[in-house]
Amino acid sequence: MTAPAFTPEDTGYFTEENSADVVIGRMKTDDARFREVMSAVIRHLHALVKEVEPTQAEWMAAIEFLTRTGQICTDWRQEYILLSDTLGVSMLVDAINNRKPSGATETTVLGPFYVSDAPRYDNGADICLDGKGAPLLVRGRVTDTGGRPVAGALLDVWQTNEDGFYDVQQKGVQPDMNLRGVFRTDAEGRYWFRSVKPRFYPIPSDGPVGQLLDRMARHPYRPAHIHFIVGAEGYEPITTHIFSPDCPYLHSDTVFGVKESLIADYRQVDDPEQAARLGLPNPFWTVESDFVLARPGAVG
């Protein structure tokens, strides 16, 4: 049996000094992008190891951490997304991939609890199925960057309930599809629906990511928000939130998802006649949030 021939790029034997070059030199892939990405991963990983010089025990602790992170993942819980979120990587990837023109609504993380195929509702419907929480009217418009209304835009919305849990975290406790829904804008680009005022909540912290946050002396809380995916034919879709300005965790979101432009103005209304007209108890909260969509490839 003939041994495979080495090429100059193989760079010979592995040493502490040339470690990254040797590993990269062994790649023979024809996929240029894959080679670019893996070369960068290898160089940065080896540079990290050389900088911190981990002990064998520390290296094994890192391996065990990654193992536990994979083991705790389920259909409804993605611990690696939580890890990416809490280290700021998810927001960095989002920023790089969503460089929008001036005036377009800013984006933020999707989060691990999005569910496709939420029920479609007419404007004005109530997405709160468990009857908990302070009643809230959400309304606004979807426009393009020139201020023109976008008719027929779809808004996919979801949030936690009054207890700080998404429906998928409490199967058999919350109704399925509680606080989820899809709405379509009217001819003037308007949308409106009934919900409850969002509350802050902790990300799942009973696993490896929660232990890591504890070691870093960081809390696991996300500030109160409502998720939105907004899209329309001919426009770039956006994944974003609207945040409550009175939340104590607004400036320390554990996943770094808050942007100043996404902090909405929640107002409490004490008006029995208006409440009756809207089908809400009195008093109630209201928030107006407009979304601006850009055309594909728009810059500036």
Rank of each mutant, 00 (worst) to 15 (best):
T7I: 11
P8Q: 12
T11A: 09
T11I: 14
T11V: 14
T11M: 09
G12Q: 02
F14W: 13
F14C: 13
E16I: 10
E17T: 14
N18C: 03
A20S: 15
D21R: 14
V22W: 06
V23G: 01
V23R: 12
I24E: 12
I24R: 11
R26T: 14
K28Q: 11
T29A: 01
D31A: 06
A32I: 07
R33K: 13
F34T: 08
E36I: 06
V37E: 11
I42M: 12
V49W: 10
E53Y: 07
Q56L: 13
W59F: 07
M60V: 15
A62R: 15
A62P: 04
I63R: 13
E64L: 13
F65L: 05
C73G: 04
W76G: 14
S84M: 12
G88A: 06
G88I: 09
V89C: 04
S90E: 06
L92A: 15
L92I: 08
V93F: 12
N98P: 07
P101R: 01
G103F: 02
G103L: 08
T107G: 11
Y114N: 04
D117W: 09
Y121K: 08
D122F: 02
G124A: 03
A125I: 01
C128W: 08
C128K: 08
L129D: 12
D130H: 12
R141Q: 10
R141I: 05
V142N: 02
V142G: 09
G146S: 02
G146R: 08
R148V: 00
R148I: 00
P149M: 10
L155S: 00
V157P: 04
D163R: 07
F165N: 11
F165K: 15
Y166C: 10
Y166V: 00
M177P: 02
G181W: 06
V182Q: 14
A187G: 07
E188F: 05
G189H: 04
R190Y: 01
W192A: 11
F193M: 01
P202G: 07
S205Y: 08
D206G: 15
G207E: 10
P208M: 02
G210Q: 11
L212K: 05
D214H: 08
D214C: 05
M216P: 00
R218S: 01
H219L: 10
H219N: 08
H219A: 14
Y221R: 12
Y221S: 11
H225N: 07
I226V: 15
H227E: 11
H227A: 02
F228H: 13
V230W: 13
E233G: 01
G234R: 10
P237I: 07
H241P: 07
D246N: 15
C247Y: 02
P248D: 09
S252P: 02
T254P: 09
F256D: 06
E260S: 12
L262M: 14
D265K: 09
R267M: 05
D271T: 01
A275I: 11
G279I: 11
P281Y: 12
P281I: 04
P281M: 05
N282E: 03
P283L: 09
V287N: 03
E288K: 13
S289P: 00
D290R: 04
F291L: 03
V292Y: 07
L293H: 01
L293S: 08
L293G: 14
A294R: 02
A294M: 00
R295I: 05
P296T: 01
A298I: 06
V299A: 08
